[in-house]
């Protein structure tokens, strides 16, 4: 991140022209305009393609040999598989198994997306709420559809808390409904906000390094610590997104 900032700071003149939000700007690489739709292939799309390529390479190349005793790369691939399999089994039970491919894709896409965003000069596509909300909406609509497919109209009982007096039901159902509708929003918001704040913070702090001259070692030390924290947050947020999806899936499968 520091290298990336140094060039930008130089461009802005004297380091004061630093733009912490510049890193989130979309720039079309291949402009595509169909009617009123802007379908350009942007830097965000490019890094999504790179993420998919990394995941495919990690999953397919080392496991080609199907070694009984895995090498390092195969062990990494198997570990990723096991993390997701355990997560799904622990939170959604046996019936959740059939949704494993989706959860695995979701988790690995977010994990690689978050981690590659920490490479200086890269683009973090998870720092855009459009991306995270689209993923959260897929999870939300999918789990709701599964819930109705499994329980039919009985899934509506999900919104009526058990044991509540009947006169309070209209109020409680409304509150439960809002609470349910807030799930995709909070899912999207959490990932997006974590990524946005982390990267903006890193860049702002990096600006101080050059402005403060010799005293810049203080923010530099902070940068090192925060970069380590960002690695943790990148992994943690991908994990949280995936596990909350599993829990919503569990709610849809088993109600409560």
């Amino acid at each position: 991140m520091a290298e990336q900032t140094s060039t930008n700071g130089g461009d802005g003149g004297g380091g004061f022209g630093l733009h912490p939000m510049e890193q989130f700007e979309l720039s079309p690489i291949v402009p595509i305009q169909i009617g009123d739709l802007n379908l350009s292939f942007t830097n965000s799309s490019l890094w999504m393609v790179i993420a998919v390529a990394i995941i495919s390479a990690l999953m397919m190349l080392p496991t080609r040999g199907r070694a009984l005793i895995p090498g390092r790369a195969q062990a990494a691939a198997e570990m990723l598989y096991e993390v997701v399999a355990n997560m799904l089994r622990d939170s959604a039970g046996k019936e959740g198994r059939q949704y494993f491919p989706f959860v695995f894709c979701l988790f690995s896409f977010l994990l690689i997306g978050n981690l590659q965003g920490l490479i200086p000069g890269s683009f973090t596509f998870t720092s855009h709420i459009v991306v995270t909300f689209a993923l959260a909406a897929v999870v939300f609509l999918g789990t709701t559809a599964i819930g109705f497919a499994r329980h039919g109209i009985g899934f509506l009982k999900f919104f009526a808390p058990e044991g509540a007096p009947s006169w309070s039901l209209p109020l409680l159902v409304l509150i439960e409904l809002i609470s349910y509708l807030s799930r995709p929003v909070s899912l999207a918001l959490r990932l997006f906000a974590n990524m946005l704040v982390g990267h903006a913070l890193l860049k702002t702090l990096a600006g101080f390094v050059f402005v403060l001259g010799i005293a810049g070692v203080i923010p530099l030390a902070g940068l090192v610590a925060i970069t380590a924290l960002e690695v943790l947050i990148a992994i943690l947020q991908a994990y949280v997104f995936a596990i909350l999806s599993c829990i919503y899936l569990n709610d849809a499968l088993h109600m409560h």
Binding site: N86, M87, R89, D90, S91, I247, N250, H254
Partner: peptide
């Protein structure tokens, strides 16, 4: 409410 019906060791969920 997410706790019921959850099988087995529930260490690392949510």
């Amino acid at each position: 409410r997410t706790d019921t019906n959850r099988p087995g060791n529930g260490g690392n969920e949510r």
